[in-house]
């Protein structure tokens, strides 16, 4: 029998809304993947998200599940409180690089080290998006940002932080992987990884962390097409895709 696939709006996508994201931004793609996964796993009524501070602060307008707003960097702690009191629910955090790798470094390391049964989606676009393109801990060497107008200098600002590799040094966390949404082939892999990260939680396994290399054409000063190319040519070599830990 021939399988018919219909491309339609996921049920978990809030009805009648369009995102505020810029053309070529990776947030919209990642949101959609999360919605598709929520549909496929049948967990819409049982999922609780935490909304970050950053461009995705309004993600609750798009993903139709319970949400609590998190202070900048604090989503892992917030989600810990939610999951500990409602262990029967599927709880996820969604954070950008300024949020997770700068102001929230303590929270992300300790949530991983406690092995909270949570799912984290980490959007790494190597820049602060919402505040207008400042340098992030993940900004690449030589990359220009409004607070490193001459390009990131490692003598002044250190080297870009690889969060997957950092967290993978911990014994506790279960699943750590880096994916990208820069090309359809990567998006397919990204969906598999995010789905596993949710599936792990449903199965009561430990902490799951998915880093998504994303694009910010607006603050990178590129067209969407150039941004997708830059992710592939420049970000991926510094941030290699792959699985760093998988409950081994």
């Amino acid at each position: 029998m021939k399988e018919i696939k219909i491309y339609e709006r996921p049920k978990a996508w809030a009805k009648g809304v369009h995102t505020h994201y810029c053309p070529g931004c990776g947030h919209g793609i990642t949101h959609r993947l999360i919605c598709e996964i929520i549909d496929e796993l049948g967990i819409q009524n049982d999922t609780i998200g935490t909304a970050p501070v950053g461009c995705a602060a309004l993600m609750y307008d798009y993903i139709d599940v319970d949400f609590c707003e998190a202070a900048h960097g604090r989503a892992p702690a917030l989600a810990t409180g939610i999951k500990r009191t409602r262990p029967d629910k599927i709880v996820f955090t969604y954070q950008g690089d300024g949020d997770l790798a700068s102001i929230g470094t303590a929270e992300i390391i300790h949530v991983a080290n406690r092995g909270e049964k949570l799912t984290t989606i980490f959007i790494n676009n190597a820049i602060y998006g919402m505040t207008g393109g400042q340098m992030a801990p993940t900004t690449l060497i030589g990359q220009k940002a409004t607070t490193c107008p001459f390009g990131r200098d490692p003598q002044l600002a250190g080297y870009p932080m690889r969060m997957c590799e950092l967290l993978a040094t911990l014994e506790t966390p279960g699943f750590i992987t880096r994916v990208s949404v820069a090309r359809p082939k990567y998006i397919i892999e990204a969906k598999k990884a995010i789905k596993q990260a949710f599936q792990n939680q449903i199965e009561g396994k430990g902490y799951s962390f998915v880093e998504v290399l994303s694009n910010c054409p607006t603050n990178w000063g590129m067209t969407p097409v150039q941004a997708f190319e830059w992710t592939e040519s420049t970000m991926i070599p510094h941030y290699p895709l792959g699985v760093f830990k998988n409950f081994e």
């Binding site: 935490t50 609590c68 998190a70 202070a71 604090r74 892992p76 702690a77 917030l78 989600a79 810990t80 409180g81 939610i82 999951k83 500990r84 009191t85 409602r86 303590a106 929270e107 390391i109 300790h110």
Partner: peptide
């Protein structure tokens, strides 16, 4: 918690349920 900053956010999460 790893800090009072984290502790109060865990409290916020617990209270939110």
């Amino acid at each position: 918690a790893e800090s009072e900053v984290a502790a109060i956010n865990m409290v916020m999460g617990g209270g939110s349920t």
